[in-house]
């Protein structure tokens, strides 16, 4: 029932989409982590305005589909601002903005989970608030929330498949191209699926290793 032989020459083409998918995921996660940290700090700030901004932002980006956000940034923005972003930039921007919203929620909870005694130790040592947050509280918050953060990365990795709608030839898009060419759907999709699955497994075991290491220290 399988006819992998028919798509054999196209397999490398499909698999090379892994690089593009990973590129999107990694860059977006890094930007999302920075944005999420800033938003999380806004959420715990004493300023009502900053809290309002961060909560409003999260509410909008969590409350609408990622596909719609991508559409607005890539297709609608040129009409409004007259600038056309290249697909890569539009994709990265959308994913970063979106994951920033989710990561900020994860980190906010993580900061709350750090023992109040840590803050008191910082106060008693006169460590300024921003340094205490950056060097003492946030690293522990990130450590406490590592499993949720990894989940977010995995989500992002899979959702990156959406960039095919703006013409980027990522893993899934390549599988679909090959499928359309050969009138053969199962095999290319299975190959792409296997690639996604292996990447997720890799991420998960990397996270486990990291968690184990952090536990020792």
């Amino acid at each position: 029932m399988f006819h992998f032989d028919l798509i054999l020459p196209s397999i490398p083409y499909i698999i090379s989409g892994v690089g593009i998918t990973l590129q999107y995921t990694l860059v977006s996660v890094c930007c999302g982590l920075i944005l999420g940290s800033i938003l999380a700090l806004f959420k715990i700030s004493s300023s009502r305005i900053l809290r309002g901004i961060a909560n409003g932002y999260t509410s909008i980006f969590r409350g609408t589909p990622l596909l719609l956000q991508l559409g607005i940034i890539y297709f609608a923005l040129p009409n409004v601002l007259g600038v056309t972003l290249p697909p890569f930039l539009a994709g990265i921007l959308t994913f970063s903005l979106n994951s920033g919203a989710y990561i900020s929620e994860i980190l906010r909870a993580g900061i709350g989970s750090v023992d109040a005694g840590q803050k008191e130790a910082c106060l008693s040592l006169n460590i300024p608030r921003h340094k205490a947050m950056k060097d003492i509280i946030l690293p522990q918050a990130i450590r406490n929330t590592l499993p949720s953060l990894v989940n977010e990365v995995i989500d992002l990795l899979k959702e990156s498949a959406l960039i095919s709608i703006i013409g980027e030839t990522d893993l899934l898009r390549r599988a679909n191209i090959v499928a359309a060419e050969k009138y053969l759907y199962l095999e290319p999709l299975l190959i792409a699926g296997a690639c996604y699955y292996i990447m997720v497994l890799g991420l998960a075991s990397l996270a486990k290793l990291l968690e184990k290491r952090l536990k020792v220290t």
Binding site: D115, Q118, A121, P139, T217
Partner: peptide, 8 residues
């Protein structure tokens, strides 16, 4: 009482 060393 509970030390509050920085664990990381």
């Amino acid at each position: 009482q509970n030390f509050h060393l920085f664990p990381h």
